[in-house]
Each structure stands twice: as structure tokens, then as C-alpha cells.
Amino acid sequence: METTIKFYQTDTFTVGNRLLSEAERSVQAGMQRTNALNSGHRACQGCGEALGARFAVDAAMRATNNQLVACNATGCLEVFSTPYPESSWQLPWLHSLFGNAAAVATGVAAAMKVKGKQHIRVLAQGGDGGTTDIGFGCLSGMFERNDDVLYICYDNEAYMNTGVQRSSATPPAARTATTMPVGQHANGNVFGKGKSVPLIAMAHEIPYVATASVADLRDLEAKVTKAMSIHGARYIHIHVPCPLGWGADPAHTIKLARLAIESGLFPVFEAEHGEITGHRAIRAQVPVEDYLKLQKRFAHLFRAPKQVDVIAHLQAMADRNIRRFKLLEKFTSPTGGAAA
């Protein structure tokens, strides 16, 4: 009977669902989830990074039967999770520097290999600053050597820990402390700069690259799980809204992440050995305005006179993503992560 019914009350968009079989439930739905990043951490209310980190690390811990070590770059995640004398981490965890998480992880992986403990897997993680900017050299080196490390970037699109300064992951038109909408930055962060580390990672032709979002837990978990089934260098870039830095309601963290996907501004896809192999289709497309309006970092676009051209430019970026990653084409990723 269970097998003939394909349709569930709520499908798999929710975290769990009592109607699903255990195998179909998310790691996060389990009473036995590890809570790798435990309560008592000092992240802001509604922190997307705290959420994304627990999602990802819990999934990785389940995939490795808890045989996992994490190396963390300096940044919000590190600071809010490990202020002396309190740590929130439930797994062996090492913080060295801002720009070297990938290399430190390489060292840990090398140690595990030389010690005959290759079943202990290694995760490196950092924010967008620690990944796309200062840690980029070490990251590229780790990719190029194809070291057995899964690197996860929690992208909240600016240097939040230091007070919301622009990073190379900051979207155009966003207001940050170093791209205030005045003078030469009249419309916030300039267009045409920044970089896509997922695409750069693909250029290294590493075994696995994926983007994910806190708004799609199943997809995220499927990708982390898949990544942990592969050896070699792997990269997952997770979109994690920052209520503080984006000037958003802490309750809107997941909603914003969802709108970023549904507008096309944050394409969710995966690639193997440099080739795109799957994407998460947009379920109900929304204009970028729906996403932008909820954030004070874009408020200058909506003050009179409304910056119609800038908004159109952002919409064009979303439209380009939609074309480039075929986001309106129904396609279920091989990971099975992309729902509906």
C-alpha cells in the first residue's frame, strides 16, 4: 500500500513528515541527529549560517557515521561557536586562521591517511570572505591537488563578522559598510565584479561541486551525503541569509533563501568533474523585487525615485542564471535532492 501511493500530504518540502518512511526523512528530522552545532552558540537571532552549518555538518556526520573532523576558517561561524570557555561543536574541530581552512584540512586528511585512519573524513568550512577572498589560494591549491576534503562555503554575501563589509561574493547594488550607496557607490556595490567560486571550482575539474541553500534542506543533505560518498576535493557553496547584514527580519531567513532560489538570483546546481549534472528547478518563479524588498541592504533601490534600471539589471542577472542553468526546466538532479 505504501509503495503505490506516490503523493504525500506534504511531499518532501518539509523537514520531516510522519507519513514518510525513515529513509525518506531528512537527517534534521531525526531525534538522533547529532546537533553538530549545539545550543548555546552566540549567532544572531535567525542566523542562516548557524542553521546551514548544522544542516551540513549533521548530514556529513551521518554520512560518515560520525567519523568526521572539521576545520574552520575565522569568521562568524568560528567566533559564535567557540568563544572561550564554551564550544558548540560536537565533533573534533580545529580553527587555525582566516585564510587557511582548506590547507589545514589537507593536513588533517594527510594525517588520517598516513595514520591508516582514512575512514575519518575531513570537512573544511568558512564564510564567503574566508573562501572567495582570503582563503582562495589555499582553496584552489586543495582543489588542484584533489585532496580528500569537502570544503563548504557558507555564503552570506559579505564580511559579517567584522561589520558587514563587501566581499567578492557581495551581490551588485547591495549596501555594505564599504559600499554605502553614496558617491561612486551611489547604487551600492558595483556591477560586474565579484566571482563565482562554484564555477571556478568546476574549472579545477574536481569530482564534485554543488550549490545549496538553507531553503532546501533535502537538496542540501542529499548533496552533502553525495559529497561524502566521493573521495577527492569537493566543494559545496551554501546560501545562508544574514538577518543582521542584510537588514532583514530574523524570521525571514529561510524565506529569503527561498526567494533567492525562486527568483533565479541564486542558482542551485551540481557538477561532476567540471560538467554540470543537475539543477534544482524553480518551483514558482518570482521577480527579484520580491526578494530585494525584504532587505534593507537594497532599500536604496526602492526609495523615491525608485532605481528601476538597477532593479532591471538585477532581474537580468537572475534571468541569465535561469537561462544558463536551465532553472525553469524540470529536472531532477541525480542526487535526488531537487524536489518537485
Partner: peptide
Amino acid sequence: ECDNCYGVCPDS
């Protein structure tokens, strides 16, 4: 019992 609240809480 969809587990959403349980899942989405950044503070567990």
C-alpha cells in the same frame, strides 16, 4: 509533525 520547527531552529 512535519518537523519543520525542529529542523529550522538555528539554535536547536
